[in-house]
């Protein structure tokens, strides 16, 4: 069987962000390259935040998924050559994040002031009457907000340039 890049990308759809298990690494936008040499597959990825502790888990998940499809010889390389930014999350990914209960980052997210994190649409009721409580959250890529309309706290996937 000849394996194509397309096959690999389809299989990688099964690998999810360990902290947002509805979001695939493809939709998160962190897969940079797939290189196939005979039976050897090399996947290159880049982290969302450089201190992200989930990177090792994602690397292992990629290896596990490829093995389950019969690819024994695979390598996952992490580098910063083409760094991630929040505009690299696909539209499908943004919808998945929102459905999971987290506000997706504003697109074309130029972070010039913390004001950019104010009045984020609430993922539960869509209201703009929301307050940022802190630009930091339970993971490096999230901030914490409060919706005055439905009176729920929620998180946002932070914009990053």
């Amino acid at each position: 069987m000849v394996i194509t890049n397309h096959d690999i990308l389809v299989w990688l759809e099964e690998v999810k962000d360990p902290e947002i298990p509805v979001l695939s690494l493809i939709d998160l936008g962190v897969i940079r390259n797939v290189d196939i040499q005979d039976t050897k597959v090399k996947v290159t990825m880049t982290p969302t935040f450089s201190g992200c502790p989930a990177i090792d888990m994602m690397k292992q998940d990629i290896v596990d998924i490829l093995r389950s499809h019969g690819i024994e010889d695979c390598e996952v390389v992490v580098n910063f050559k083409d760094p991630w930014n929040s505009d690299m999350i696909s539209e499908k990914g943004r919808q998945a994040i929102k459905k999971f209960g987290i506000a997706p980052p504003p697109s074309n997210g130029l972070v010039l002031d913390l004001d950019v994190l104010e009045n984020i649409n609430c993922p539960h009721c869509d209201s703009e009457d929301t307050l940022m409580k802190t630009p930091f959250g339970p993971t490096l890529c999230r901030s914490i907000h409060y919706c005055n309309n439905c009176q729920q706290a929620f998180e946002q996937f932070k914009p990053l340039q």
């Binding site: 760094p83 991630w84 930014n85 972070v111 002031d113 913390l114 630009p135 930091f136 490096l140 932070k158």
Partner: peptide, 16 residues
């Protein structure tokens, strides 16, 4: 490459 990556992260620190 690393500087380009972490500049965006540090920006949050500066804003804070």
């Amino acid at each position: 490459e690393v500087a380009a990556k972490i500049k965006g992260e540090i920006q949050y620190h500066v804003l804070h």
